[in-house]
Amino acid sequence: MKMGGGYELNSSFIFDKALLTLIDNLPTPQDYNLTEWKNKNLREIKGLNFNPSKSEISKLPLDTKVSFVEMASVSNNGYIENKIDKTLEEVKGSYTYFIENDIILAKITPCMENGKCAIAKDLTNQIGFGSSEFHVFRTDNTKINIKFLFVFLNRDDIRKRAEKSMTGSSGHRRVPISFYENLQIPLPPLDAQEKIVQAINSIEQKISSLQTELNSLNGKQKEILEKYLF
């Protein structure tokens, strides 16, 4: 079976007819006027902002609670593993500022190459601060869906291209924000992006369900081995 874009998917791994139907019906450029589906530099996309300024929250009381995210707390698998509450007083300075649903992406080696990238979720007061070694991407979702952008950025081939653009001395090399500003993305209309994201979310849910089932079966296997072979 082919996914949109011509990618092959082995249906024996997706035990869900509804999910297979969803994937089979993903939109393609041929379903649209091609002027509505073309490559754009990220900096050309209206409503997409890079590394927003802390001045947005300059009038908040310094005792306001926010979430703090260390670099080590960002999983290599695309999510934030741990957050701790701090006050604005504690995080003012060089820490990176972001808010709910922003993308945070490591810019320093080897964290960038390892895939430390996540969408910020469940932040205290919807505000977050973290390592100064994060880039932040924010969209108003009028031209580009935040999950669509996240999936695009959080790919091995993008990281390999970013690695070639790093600057600085050995051990402290970083990807400049200009690399991402000039990065081209195939930009479908928003409704097509949302359908693609829906399919991705469904696949992720299926993977999570299968992983839970696998963990349960591994536990049953251990029980049997301990009961009968020890």
Rank of each mutant, 00 (worst) to 15 (best):
V69P: 00
Y97P: 00
A120L: 10
T167P: 01
F179N: 03
D140T: 08
L123C: 04
K164Q: 14
I108T: 03
A72G: 11
K86E: 06
G78D: 09
S131M: 06
C117H: 00
Q126K: 09
S178P: 00
Y97V: 07
K147T: 14
F134K: 01
K147R: 15
M71K: 04
E89N: 07
N154H: 14
M71G: 03
G93T: 05
I84L: 14
I99N: 05
L88G: 04
R138M: 08
T87E: 05
T167M: 12
N125S: 11
T167I: 15
P110A: 12
Y180G: 01
G93Y: 05
L183V: 09
I80H: 01
T96W: 01
T87A: 08
F134E: 02
E56V: 07
T109R: 01
F68C: 11
I104R: 02
L88K: 02
K143Q: 12
S58I: 15
L183C: 09
G128Y: 03
N141G: 05
H135V: 04
K164L: 15
D157F: 14
L62K: 13
F179D: 03
R173M: 15
A120Q: 02
E81T: 13
A118F: 00
I127T: 06
T87V: 12
E100L: 15
E113C: 10
E90V: 08
I146T: 09
H135L: 11
I99W: 02
D63K: 14
S58Y: 03
N76E: 08
F179S: 03
T64P: 02
N154P: 01
E90Y: 02
G130H: 00
D122P: 00
K65A: 13
I177R: 02
C117A: 13
I99L: 10
L149S: 01
A72D: 09
K121I: 11
E113Q: 14
G78V: 15
V151Q: 00
I84Q: 11
I57G: 06
E113L: 13
D140M: 13
I127F: 05
A72R: 08
H172A: 13
N145C: 12
G130N: 00
S94V: 12
L153P: 00
S178I: 06
L183I: 10
S169V: 15
R138S: 06
S67R: 01
E89M: 03
L183Q: 04
T96I: 05
S178T: 10
N125C: 09
G128Q: 01
K160D: 07
K121E: 13
S58R: 11
P176S: 05
F68G: 07
C111A: 15
A118R: 00
F134V: 06
V91M: 05
N182H: 03
D102H: 04
A162Y: 06
S165W: 06
T167A: 09
T139R: 02
F179W: 04
K65R: 08
F98S: 03
S132P: 00
S58V: 14
S94D: 10
K143N: 14
N145F: 07
N77P: 00
K83M: 14
C111V: 10
T142C: 08
L60W: 12
E90P: 02
F179M: 07
G168A: 14
E56M: 08
E81A: 13
S73T: 11
G93S: 05
N101W: 01
N101M: 10
A118Y: 00
I104D: 01
V74A: 09
Y79H: 14
S67M: 10
E133D: 12
